[in-house]
Design a protein around this nucleic acid. Structure first.
Lengths: 254, 254
DNA sequence: GGCTAAACTTGATTTATATCAAGTTCTGGC
DNA sequence: GCCAGAACTTGATATAAATCAAGTTTAGCC
């Protein structure tokens, strides 16, 4: 099955789908990206006991909707998801993409209400972290408390970086930076960083980066012409990482 | 003295400058915006004991620099400050403005390093919250832990909203939304929301919103022509809050 | 109280990117 | 293996806002 193959390629050990749904934090291949960083074994077990593992979400399945009360944060185990709001005309406004090891729903903590919709872009496994239990556990385990604060701080950092990107950079710098950013996130989870599948459509990328799809298409072509990357169907192949990074950072007045 | 007058107008009780530097969390007029929300008296006292009150920062004084280790978060008591980074050419890129009751430096928690510069735009009083002590205290006081998480979540919410604003709205909607946002924040601290001083220059606003100063100037003029607001020197006078909000939210195709 | 630099204003011109229009290619379901 | 809808591509045109240029006003300083 396609699904099992996909999951296999995500995890180190070849395991059956059933096992992947049940796997514990202790043996989770992405735990170093997730919450259990630096926790003692007993503490991880404690955390593991509150985590609810969900059956895989299929493409277009919705995890939560705007306005729903916060029940759980979601840690992505495999696949990819997006968060989005709807504007006055009901048009989708994508606010984020989430890869394995990343936590969805942190913005809901302030007023116990989800601020966006979350939807799977692909078959995805997630762990649900019931927030009230997580909060209590954070009071008992100093390492978990610190880690939770760090994860939130990290999200604030990322948001500020995105802000600067959108506010100060032109279209090609945005797209280059977007690709570099995805690449770094794949590298972090131990996957190939110079060759990977784009989990979202170009329409989604355009929406997220505040550009027209046509512009995205033209710019991918331009980046290819410059021998910086190749895009075949949805597979990105970064040909010159260093120059692409440079391109993303500083304006290229050519 | 100008300073004392300014502080007086910010605080309920007329007090001497010396008192304001020493005032405790228990009697701080902005405490409901700051950390002590919902804490018991004894807990507030506990928090109060770690807060270091600083002499006022003068206009252009720097609180911390990019790359410095995180010592303290800063709670604004009066005045206004900005955070910014420098781009490759050394040009200032403003990432935020901070009003009384707001906390500066949350993005530094992830890797214990400040991610920006922070500078006073005006004579400003701040409380320094030593982070290691705050973290420990958060482990002892559940209400403080929750509040800290909520404040961080709230910052993430604000960042996402800003992201949507910059990504999806045109220049006049951005400016209108910026003014509305300031107005709401003044209202939150119990000050006039329809008539207030702009604490930053138009150059700073332009920088923050990713626009040219000329555009800001023209748009303020346009908003005035539409009888939505008045700008005299640095004093904003919102003439039609409802329409201005509407203007900020939905595109006005006129 | 006059001088200087910064802040702001106004108009003319340019430009990056959106929009419009009309394709082609890909993908999933029967 | 074919069909329909979605995704992507390509070119022509429009436009919002930047840039350039040259003011005027404001505010701090000796």
């Amino acid at each position: 099955m396609v699904l099992v193959d996909k999951l296999r390629s995500t995890d180190c050990k070849p395991t059956k789908l059933m096992d992947l749904e049940q796997i514990k934090c202790q043996s989770c291949s992405i735990s170093r990206l997730c919450l259990p960083v630096m926790l003692a074994d007993a503490e991880i077990e404690h955390l593991d006991s509150i985590v609810k593992r969900r059956k895989p979400y299929q493409k277009d399945d919705v995890l939560f909707r705007f306005g729903e009360p916060l029940q759980s944060l979601y840690a992505v185990r495999s696949g990819c998801l997006k968060t989005y709001t709807l504007d006055a005309d009901g048009i989708e406004q994508i606010t984020g993409f989430y890869l394995p090891g990343e936590i969805i729903g942190l913005d809901a903590i302030a007023n116990n209400t989800h601020q966006s919709f979350a939807k799977a872009l692909d078959t995805s496994l997630v762990c649900a972290l019931p927030y009230n239990k997580l909060d209590i556990l954070a009071g008992q385990i100093p390492g978990l408390r610190s880690q939770l604060l760090k994860i939130m701080s990290s999200e604030i950092q990322d948001d500020k970086a995105l802000f600067l990107l959108l506010n100060k950079k032109n279209a090609e710098q945005r797209l280059a930076a977007f690709v570099i950013n995805l690449s770094r996130r794949y590298a972090n989870r131990g996957l190939a960083s110079d060759r990977f599948q784009l989990p979202m459509t170009q329409v989604d990328i355009a929406n997220y980066l505040g550009m027209a799809v046509e512009t995205i298409s033209r710019l991918f072509k331009k980046l290819h012409k410059l021998d910086l990357l190749e895009l075949k169907q949805k597979e990105i192949n970064i040909l010159n990482m260093q120059q692409l990074s440079h391109f993303a950072g500083t304006s290229c007045h050519v």
